[in-house]
Amino acid sequence: MALLLRTVARQGLCLSRSQFGVLYRPAVPMGTAAKKEINKFWAKNTQLNRPVSPHISIYKWSVPMMMSISHRGTGVALSSGISVFALAALVLPESYPYYLDLIHSMTFGPQFFAFSKFALAFPVAYHSFNGIRHLAWDLGKGFKIPEVYRSGYIVIALTVLTSIGLAAM
């Protein structure tokens, strides 16, 4: 009996282990040589106290560079906003229309809502238009420097127009 129990238990253990194996198999690091090389690179950088590239204070800031970091900035900001909103939905006791009416009843004036809409529409519009620009690059289009500048100015113009339009709605 004990033997039977032990066998069953062992089989169960093996089964659960194999299940974990299926789940975690992809987590085994691939390309260990490349990883070692990257680690060596970072260890050397830290040891020599090298500055991070691109060095922010010695680079001449260009429009594409600003737009690139802004794309990341708006992305992180929007993602954080969504997370805060989701967390608020879980934590706050009342419903969304209740809080919206509460803010509306406060005497902030109509500019407050127009400003809120602009503050929301601007990063969404920028990240969307610049995202389309990135998708065009992913197709291998628009890599020449004048094209990069032109598409950048188009994105900025469209973003300003769209966000002003949306805020005025």
Partner: peptide, 9 residues
């Protein structure tokens, strides 16, 4: 947590 919150909403 974000996905759970949005689904809850």
């Amino acid at each position: 947590v974000t996905f759970a919150g949005l689904c809850y909403f």
